[in-house]
């Protein structure tokens, strides 16, 4: 989804800091999320993502800085901001002994929903999670993926404008992961603002329009995916296998051009705009292709570039 012009800021994090004893879990983190955005918070385990999320959801008070939701300061006592947030914790925060419907009723009632509202919201949440036919079964009978989906459904009960997903796909099989992604994208289509934390690059690349990269408690970079990719100095790489080694130069839009035997490598800033022009120019120059590969720079490379280490280290 493209950024909405002049969209109001739903979430603003300003110079946030939190320490546990001598360990600084979050250091001067700042970012903002606009209405309707799908914002990714990317970083390895221990980067400070969950601590940041805890301060956004009002389960932890910040030592420094502030969190604003719709311009209102968040704290552990700010009930008004809590009503605007739907929080999906990384743990399966559900009561296993009771039914899915009872879980939804209980958590919904904490947000002041009346009985009729609870019934309506339960039905809607169960539909979104694809659990309508299992609503009256104890949660302990559910598979891991079903529990994950119910974990999300619980956060939808009070129809929040800001949804926060804290690593919702940990320990989930590929099929359930896809179901979670579809749910998330459906919510985004309904206009929800989404903050999604993960340490999986591919999830951010698939789901998010903007990203903040965290490492050692700091936001080391943030922006749209393309903006981050351009930090590498090469946004998109094109590799062309030629029939024979040919000297070429002056290809429009091609940057960092290299020729190694029959392989021609160059970068383009905009794949859609620059690649066809480059290929046409090469064809006019008499180059015969045996293969063409084009690949956008990955966030993995961006992270490696920013921190000097792999995200999975």
């Amino acid at each position: 989804m493209n950024r909405i012009p002049y969209a109001p800021t739903v979430l603003e994090v300003r110079g946030l800091g939190k320490s546990f004893g001598a360990i600084a879990a979050v250091k001067n983190a700042s970012f903002r999320v606009e209405k309707g955005e799908r914002f990714g918070l990317l970083g390895p385990n221990g980067a400070g993502k969950t601590t940041t999320i805890s301060m956004i959801t009002g389960t932890l008070d910040a030592d420094q800085g502030s969190v604003l939701i719709d311009g209102e300061a968040v704290s552990t006592r700010s009930n008004n901001t809590k009503r605007k947030v739907g929080y999906v914790p990384q743990e399966l925060a559900l009561y296993d002994e009771i039914t899915a419907r009872d879980n939804l009723r209980f958590f919904g009632s904490l947000y002041g929903l009346g009985l009729v509202q609870v019934l309506k919201s339960s039905q809607r949440s169960l539909e979104i999670a694809g659990l309508t036919d299992r609503a009256d079964e104890p949660v302990k009978n559910f598979s891991g993926g079903m529990k994950r989906r119910l974990n999300i459904a619980v956060a939808l009960m009070h129809d929040p404008e800001l949804m926060i997903f804290d690593e919702p796909t940990v320990g989930v099989d590929p099929q359930s992961r896809n179901a979670i992604f579809e749910t998330l994208l459906r919510l985004a289509d309904e206009g929800k603002t989404i903050v999604y934390t993960t340490h999986y690059m591919e999830e951010v690349e698939r789901l998010c329009t903007r990203v903040a990269v965290m490492d050692h408690g700091e936001v080391v970079a943030q922006g749209r995916l393309g903006e981050l990719q351009s930090m590498l100095g090469h946004g998109n790489r094109v590799v062309i296998e030629m029939e024979s080694a040919t000297f070429v130069q002056g290809i429009p839009g091609a940057l960092n051009l290299k020729i190694e035997e029959q392989t021609l490598t160059f970068d383009v800033e905009d794949m859609t705009h620059d690649l066809p022009k480059a290929l046409a120019a090469l064809s006019e120059a008499g180059v015969r292709f045996t293969g063409v590969r084009a690949k956008a720079a990955s966030l993995e490379e961006v992270f490696l570039h920013l921190t000097g280490k792999s995200l999975r280290d």
């Binding site: 959801t57 009002g58 009930n79 914790p89 958590f107």
Partner: peptide
């Protein structure tokens, strides 16, 4: 289990 985290995120 994380249930208290969810409870504390609610306006209670």
């Amino acid at each position: 289990q994380g249930i208290w985290r969810r409870l504390r995120a609610s306006p209670v």
